[in-house]
Amino acid sequence: MKKIINAVDTVVTDALTGLAAAHRELRVDLDARVVYRADGPRPGKVGLVSGGGSGHEPLHAGFVGYGMLDAACPGEIFTSPVPDQIVEATTAVSGGAGVLHIVKNYTGDVLNFEMAAELCADEGVEVARVLVDDDVAVRDSLYTAGRRGTGATLFVEKIAGALAEEGAPLAEVAAIGDEVNARSRSFGVALSACTTPAAGKPTFELAGNEVELGIGIHGEPGRSRGPAGTARELVRVAMDALQADLPLSGDTLVLVNGMGGTPLIELYIAFAEVDAYLREHGATAARSLVGNHVTSLDMQGFSVSVCALTDDLTRLWDAPVRTPALRWGH
């Protein structure tokens, strides 16, 4: 394993140190392990807190700022944050209008955010939660921990963040988060596994002509293996899976997301295929994002997330945002 790190145990702290130095518009509490907007909290604005294991950068800390998150709680690599972090972040960003927790549906994230929410309630902070579970590769049934939260997390953070910025009350901000989640689906494909610093070797091995289909964002193997096909074939597998779960039509918001080790040129090739697929099926990529946004360390591969837009969602997506990793609008 070769990585640009100082030691396995200091990866998250060292990266947060760099984040703090690079982004003066953020306030990074290294002890509490929370990343804040330097200009928050704003009285009367619903606070948005998210978090999860590290290794998915820029998610979540890269989405802290105007129009998106008020705070992010990074855990160790692929390990959800602990309740203390979440409590600290929640109370700090509370501007009196309540705080929304945006939680990806993993047992660890769910449990730790739940514990934190109880403690926050004890301290008189009203907390609502949006649970993101967009990954169609996992069947949501009695036999699984439910769908995973992946690329749609970015959609939820952006759109709920924009509504909170407009001054909407907690219940509405939570409701739009739920709506975005309900209208979004994702599917991922890996060309290679990632290597966590702790494990020191790839979490699974693929032959030269194999891809892993239906992967998550934690280096866990996918649901099945398939032959490495063309970009068109790989995108078709992903889009067929999305389409089977949520028939596509009309305007959509599309994220073609790199898993961390895939060059941008390949992501644009994938996007061309997604765009063509959507048009073939009577839908449009009305809004899009191509790049490494919800990553899995150095994994090679991509995921596609699609959200069926409404006028409201489009307006909130287009609203100004100023974070390290996402910024537009004036």
């Binding site: 294991g53 390990t79 959800s80 602990v82 309740p83 203390d84 660890g108 449990l111 730790n112």
Partner: peptide, 12 residues
């Protein structure tokens, strides 16, 4: 453990 581990096993 709840305060330091995180993940699923920490709370459990």
């Amino acid at each position: 453990l709840i305060r330091k581990v995180g993940g699923a096993s920490g709370p459990l």
